[in-house]
């Protein structure tokens, strides 16, 4: 009996030694991982400040390094971020290229659920911008475990529906997103309200006005100039339809000033045309 215990102990020790021997140190070099993380952080800050040129160069540097150490997770994060920057810069072809690389890599490696969902969402979003039918991608995401992902997928799906003219379905989705969004994401809350405002511009102008003013107040709170300009443009159109030309003009001019500061010529021209008609 005693010998059996000794034998068992020796066997376990032997097993432990084998396990220890089989352990492979991770291929990543810690200092390189830190370097990549720091580059990604700097790129994110630069992008948030609107310095896309700097953000692109930092992300590209991080991409080279993450590929050397075969850090697939970081590589996907960088590719996705690059795709998003190019979308903001209206270079959708580049954005698509980076997104498809991220997608390819995601098939070969294990990624956290959140990151895989972000890839799908981005695919749907680019599809929306290119007028492609990528609506089906969102049907899985609206049941995501992450409430934030659920809300933004509902909003994007509502935009698809609005484009198709299925306004009732869109309103249902937006109301669902609004009820779900209890301080989860203020940006998405403002997006939902803006979309609800847009939906109601024809059928119930007063309701639309309430939604849009709420969206504007949230965007002002968040200090997001692009969103504020968007809200103001939609509000101006609503006032124009309500035949309150003064307010319409005022909001158009304020939106024009913001687009001018952001150097968005296309948007400035659009408002100028609206003002000429007014």
């Amino acid at each position: 009996m005693r010998n059996r215990k000794k034998l068992l102990f020796l066997f376990l020790l032997f097993l432990l030694l084998i396990l220890q021997g089989c352990y492979r140190a991770p291929m990543e070099e810690p200092y390189r991982v830190k370097e990549i993380e720091s580059l990604i952080k700097r790129a994110k800050v630069a992008s948030e400040k609107g310095n896309f040129k700097m953000a692109l160069s930092l992300y590209e540097e991080a991409l080279k390094k993450s590929r050397i150490i075969q850090d697939d997770n970081s590589t996907v994060v960088i590719l996705l971020s690059l795709s998003r920057i190019y979308t903001s810069l209206d270079k959708i072809d580049y954005a698509k290229k980076f997104l498809s690389s991220a997608e390819e890599l995601s098939k070969k490696t294990y990624l956290p659920e959140g990151l895989s969902e972000e890839i799908i969402f981005e695919k749907a979003r680019i599809g929306f911008l290119l007028n492609e039918n990528s609506e089906a991608l969102l049907h899985k995401l609206i049941y995501s475990e992450s409430p934030y992902m659920r809300i933004k997928s509902l909003n994007l799906l509502a935009r698809f529906k609005m484009r198709e003219g299925a306004n009732e379905e869109a309103e249902e989705l937006l109301n669902k997103a609004l009820s779900m969004n209890n301080e989860i994401s203020k940006i998405e809350q403002a997006n939902t309200l803006r979309l609800l405002g847009e939906l109601n511009t024809k059928k119930n102008k007063n309701k639309a006005l309430i939604y849009l003013l709420r969206a504007l107040s949230i965007d002002k709170e968040l200090a997001l100039p692009e969103k504020i300009a968007l809200d103001m443009e939609i509000l101006a159109r609503l006032y124009r339809d309500m035949e309150d030309k003064e307010k319409a003009k005022d909001y158009f001019l304020r939106a024009f000033e913001i687009w001018k500061c952001l150097e968005r010529e296309e948007n400035q021209i659009r408002i100028m045309r609206e003002l000429e008609i007014l």
Partner: peptide, 11 residues
């Protein structure tokens, strides 16, 4: 590490 945030109404 997370990618850049993208919302449902960027454009």
């Amino acid at each position: 590490i997370k990618p850049l945030e993208a919302d449902s109404y960027e454009k």
